[in-house]
Nucleic acid binder design. Sequence first.
RNA 1: GGGGGUGUAACUCAGCGGUAGAGUAUCUGCCUUUUAAGCAGAGAGUCGACGGUUCAAAUCCGUCCACCCUCACCA
Length: 523
Amino acid sequence: MTFSRDIFFRKSKLMNRNMEKFGEKMENLNQLLAVKKQKLEKLKVLGVDPYPTRSFRTHKIKVLINNKNDFISSEEVVTITGRLKTMRRQGKVGFGNITDDSGNLQIFVKKDTVGEENYEIYKLLDLGDFVQIKGVCFNTQRGEFSLRAHVVTVLGKSLLPLPTVKEKIVDGKKQRFDEFTDIELRYRKRYLDLLLNPEVKKNFEIRAQIIKEIRSFLDEKEFMEVETPILQPLYGGANARPFVTHHNTLNVDLYMRIALELYHKRLIVGGIERVFEIGKNFRNEGMDRTHNPEFSMLELYQAYADYNDMMDLTEDMVVHIAKKVNNKEAVTFGDTEISFQKPWRRASMIDLVKEESGFDAADFDFEKIKSFCEEQGIDVENTAGPGKLIEALFEKFVEPKLVQPTFVIDFPKEISPLAKVKPGHPNLTERFELFINGNEYGNAFTELNDPIDQRQRLEAQSKLREMGDVEANVVDEDFLEALEYGMPPTGGLGIGIDRLVMLFTNNTSIKEVIFFPQMKPEE
RNA sequence: GGGGGUGUAACUCAGCGGUAGAGUAUCUGCCUUUUAAGCAGAGAGUCGACGGUUCAAAUCCGUCCACCCUCACCA
C-alpha cells in the first residue's frame, strides 16, 4: 500500500512524527481507498480484470454526436471508450456520462439489456473509472442523445476519488457547482485541473496552435528549425543570472542557457542562412505573474537582413497567428481591443521618452540625465551610464502607455552589447523591442557581426560584471572566434512564447499557460 | 524582500473563545428514461505546522510553511 498518494500527501508529515497515531488514522483516511479496493476485489471475483491490456473502440464520441440521426436510424452497434464523469443510478437502470478527448456522451445502462452479470459490473463502477461501452444510439424520453449499453467493460479503475464538479444548464448557460478552483491545487495537480476545468485545456490547445502556426509560417519562409545546447559551458545572449549544474564525467560546471542567440549566430556563420528554434530558456531570477524560471522563446536569425526586415517579419507572423487562432487581425485582452493591422507604430526610444516625459535625452549627457532621473525618484545604480538611465526613463514613462503593438526602436548601445550601431548615431543601435499592452513581447537587432567591436562590447560588459552587475554578459571566446571567421549581415528576433499565448488566451498569469509552472516544494 | 489576503471532511464552503457544521462525493436501503436525479439513513476532520494566553483555542497572540494579490527586484 502506498501512503504517499495524493489525498494522503499532506498528512505525510504525520508519518515522521507519530507513526502509531498515523497508523490509527489511516483507518479513517483510507476509507475511500478501502471501498475502492473492495470493489476491485469484487470485480476479480466476477472474473473481471480491472486493468485489461487491450481496449477497443469504433468511434470517438464527437463522431456519434455529429451524426446523431444516422446512428439512431441505422441502429449500428458502436463502441466508445472514455472516463466515467457522472453517474445517476436508479435501481435496475442507470445513466452516466462518458468523456473522451472529443466530447461527452450520456450512456444508459439497463439491467434487462446488459444482463444480470454485466449489470453487477456496472454497479461496481466509480466516477473516474475508464470504461468501454458497446451499444446502440438512441434518444431518451427527455430527448437526450445517448448510448444504450449492451456491454459495459472496465478499462481502468480509479483508486482516488475525483473532486466533484457538477454542472447544470440554466437558460442554455452552464452553471457549475463545487468547482475545482483552488489555484495552488490546480497548478500542483494539473491533471485534475485539465480533467475538471475544460477551459484550461482550451488555453493549452491555443498554445499548441500558436506554436504550430509559428512553425508553418517560418517553414513557408524557408527557415530551418534547429536545436542548440541547453547545457552550455558559458551562457550569453541576454542579461540574466543563470542556473548552474555539473557534469560528472567531464567534471565541469555547466550553465542552463538563458538565450539561444550565440549558438544561432554560430549556425549563421556556418552558412545556414535562416534558422529558428522554439525552446526553453532558464533564468535564475524572481518569479511573478509574467516570469517563470523556465520559459519558452522563439529565436530566429536571417542572413542578409536587418532589424527593419525583422519588424516586417514580426508583423506578418503575428498577423498570421491572429488570423489562424482568432480568425481576425485583432485580439481582445481584458477590456482592451488590440489591433494587429499593419503597419504597427515604429518610434525611437528617445523620442518616446521625450513625448511622455518632456525630457530630451538625445545628447546622452550623463549628468543631465542622471539629475533628471534623481528628480523622478529613479534609483541610479553605480554601473549605470546614460543608456541605462534612458531605459529606466522609458520603463517609467513610456512602457505602460504602449497598448497597441509598437516597435520601440534604436536602443542605447550601452545596453545592447550584441546589436550593431546605428549608422550616424554612435550611441544607438539598430535594435527594437515589441510592446503590446505595456509588456515586452519581442526583442530584435541588426546583429553585430564586427568581431572587433563585439569583443570590445563584451569586454565592457565584463567590466560591469566586475563592478557588481551580476547580469552583465560574459566574454565567450568561442563565440568571438566564430565571428572572426566572418558572419554575414544578419537580422535576429526573439519572441516570448508564453506571453504571446497569454495575450491570445486572455490570461494575466504565466502560470495559466505553462502546464507545470514552478512551485515551491510542499515540504 | 515589504504590505495585504487565504489555509476547516476527497471537493466547495460556513463557523471566529465553550469542545466540529452544511452541500456535493463515499457507503447502506428504496427506485427500469435520469441529468446538480430523488427519498431515508450512516461513516468520514491532529480546523496548514509549531509555540503562547486561557478553566477552555478552529476561533485570540507570536513564529514558521504554502498559495494568491500588490510593490520592489528582474529584459
